[in-house]
Design a protein around this nucleic acid. Structure first.
Lengths: 197, 197
DNA sequence: CCTACCGATCGGTAGG
DNA sequence: CCTACCGATCGGTAGG
């Protein structure tokens, strides 16, 4: 029993350290020997904790994806205006990323190294997530809250670009905390979409 | 003479094809054998055109960097308001990227695989470029064109995130052309910064 | 642009 | 978690 628990937490140590390495060097350039060295063990020993290098990547990508889905589902369940919904969606997305900036960076930059059929599943989940944000924007256009002059695809991709690069530059030790960051980002993006500021 | 010209253009063929490959698989996961195969030659033959794999990456990254610098320098030379300057900067950045979406994607995603001292030089150029955009935003805050409530680092990083992800999703065959794209992006971002819309 | 090849490194396994 | 090791692949060179 305590052995199982200890194995689990050691596995998580491996995954967390791998996330740091993947973020820093990129998945393809990060070797299992690098990872083992960081953990103070031999490369072969990693395989008593994980099945393969890609299993680590899968676990990082799909765990993050699940968090994003959960956050968005809660946002959608509230009966509020489209601008409010969009704002909450942005704040939620930022909060999820802020909980694990390293995994978020890997999620964003390294998912393409997933093999099939995982890559396909991942991309389907992502397009679904993006489309749900697009729906919120479309609702806002219909309700008159947002300009109808702007291209919806451009709007939603700009939104995602802004959100997804955050883990690359945000310093968690900075004066601005994740909630403030989300609020300011939402303000900058939503007010840019609104008809009247 | 014609041999030199032919070598030059063959070298450029190699670099362009490499850009496509680097964009698709990532620099580290793209092998010189992949590249050779795409060109219909043997891997060893590549080395009569280029010195090394990294030379290709350097050429892609620094050529794009030079284009960005040139575009921004021209924007800065015009004596206009900060919002106009920012708008022109965004349009210029988008136009430069649109001229070579593949190289732009490599510039953005693969520059970290540059070795020293090239990586350092690259990052210094980038921070300089970003800081010049930041100055424009600061001018706009001082002149009262932009809100002073927003964090300047957040604003400029959001701006760059939006710009730099464009090569990942923009379809050059789409109805919206690069100039329209630049205008709409500038509208979405600048009006989000402006005090009064 | 090719054949032939090199040393280094890769992810991973066997067996303890 | 280790030693010992494997086949595959890597970027690149020699010599033509």
């Amino acid at each position: 029993m305590s052995e199982a628990i200890s194995n689990l937490s050691r596995k998580e140590q491996v995954i967390r350290k791998a996330a740091e390495l993947f973020k820093e060097k990129g998945y393809a350039a990060a070797s299992m020997r690098d990872l083992a060295h960081l953990l103070g063990i031999e490369a072969a020993s990693l395989y008593s904790h994980i099945k393969s290098k890609e299993e680590i990547l899968r676990s990082l990508c799909f765990d993050m994806a699940a968090e994003f889905q959960k956050s968005l589902a809660e946002v959608e369940s509230k009966n509020v205006t489209a601008s409010e919904k969009l704002r909450n969606g942005i704040i939620g997305h930022i909060q999820v990323m802020a909980k694990d900036l390293t995994a978020s960076a890997v999620f964003m930059n390294e998912h393409r190294h997933l093999s099939q059929p995982y890559l396909r599943d991942f991309l389907l989940m992502r397009i679904n997530y993006i489309n749900r944000f697009k729906s919120i924007i479309e609702q806002g256009v219909k309700s008159g809250e947002f300009k109808d002059s702007i291209d919806k695809k451009l709007a939603v991709m700009t939104l995602f670009s802004s959100l997804n690069w955050m883990p690359m530059w945000y310093d968690p030790g900075s004066a601005i905390d994740p909630l403030q960051l989300g609020l300011q980002l939402a303000d900058m993006l939503v007010n840019g979409l609104k008809k009247n500021a």
